[in-house]
Design a protein around this nucleic acid. Structure first.
Lengths: 182, 182
DNA sequence: GTTTTTGCAATACGATCGTATTGTCAAGCG
DNA sequence: CGCTTGACAATACGATCGTATTGCAAAAAC
């Protein structure tokens, strides 16, 4: 056998290139060749790690989700021990909003993937929504309000991505909602 | 000159076919040939009415927006004279939510277009958001809450489209929010 | 009746796509 | 030292893409 290689790392390298292409030119521009070029590797190598384009897409989608999850976890644990529920919730929501340039790129990719998966009948959809919903509900005086809170966050993120809302507007709306709920 | 033809009608016919393709297989599947086939016309005819694929897309996007606008207007005027602000607002929001099969298809197309236009720098984006925002604000006890209301609606629509929320959940969350605001 | 112009169809062209095939080089095993 | 095998690279193939080109029937203009 030749040099053993960290498969996961190689796949992630390619997925990163995919996301750069998708953030810059949309999912339509994500072809095996483009991604290979963006990653600075050969088409053959991409094929070596992903048998089909779809496999590559699904993996990239997973990476995006994991990144978001990690961001949230990091932000929450940065709050120190025993934070107030409201502070935790606000941190969670702010973290997911596409406010800085990096999370904005991630948001664009996630949006593209959302439209992508909305059509695919063979759902690769994990139910991290249900999990998120449960977590939000546990922080809320009225657990039933979690559905609305999550939707509000998603909508705010949408409009920030689209440029119709500024980051300040989104944060203000979010805090106003927290004032109503707590 | 030969038989004069209603250009707008022909264009709309093609745009309708485009939307059927997009709703069924996503925007990726929207090619000139596919749309022509779905419309039951020749490729040449599509080219006759749209010089480029992008022109066709932009027109279809306009059609979707006009349809939504018309739906809202119709629903509002069906309320009769001098309706209460809260009733108007609820009608507006419910109308835009993708609850039935037709508006669900429209929502899918709109979502696909959202991801499509998010990348295009040469924005074809009209600011119907600002208009909608102003209208919502005029119905609300606290006009500043309009930003959140619009975002909530968008987010609810998103999750309903994605299948994570049921129509009942979305309506419940919406009514809960209206209870908070009125 | 001729001419002009619109409405469309057919086809061709070059680019790009996803993927299959094939070859090659290096590293570990016996 | 062979020999196998994993990690690529190169290229080929057929399909599909957007669009340009060409042709033609029919109706209005003259």
């Amino acid at each position: 056998m030749p040099k053993r290689v960290d498969v996961r790392e190689r796949r992630t390298l390619i997925a990163d290139a995919l996301m750069r292409v998708a953030a810059a030119q949309g999912l339509e521009a994500v072809s095996v060749r483009h991604v290979a070029a963006a990653a600075g590797v050969s088409v053959g190598m991409v094929q070596h790690y992903f048998r089909t384009r779809d496999e590559m897409m699904v993996f990239a989608l997973d990476v995006v989700r994991d990144r978001n999850q990690a961001r949230v976890t990091a932000a929450l644990s940065a709050l120190g021990p025993d934070p107030q529920p409201r502070a935790m919730l606000r941190t969670l929501l702010v973290t997911v909003l596409p406010l800085d340039e990096q999370s904005r790129a991630d948001g664009l990719v996630a949006l593209a993937f959302l439209a992508y998966t909305a059509v695919r009948p063979a759902g690769v959809k994990s139910d991290d929504t249900a999990q998120m919903l449960g977590f939000i509900a546990s922080l809320l005086p009225d657990p039933d309000a979690a559905v609305g809170v999550l939707a509000l966050m998603e909508g705010l993120g949408m409009y920030v991505l689209g440029g119709q809302y500024t980051a300040e507007q989104a944060l203000k709306a979010l805090d106003a909602q927290l004032d109503l709920l707590f």
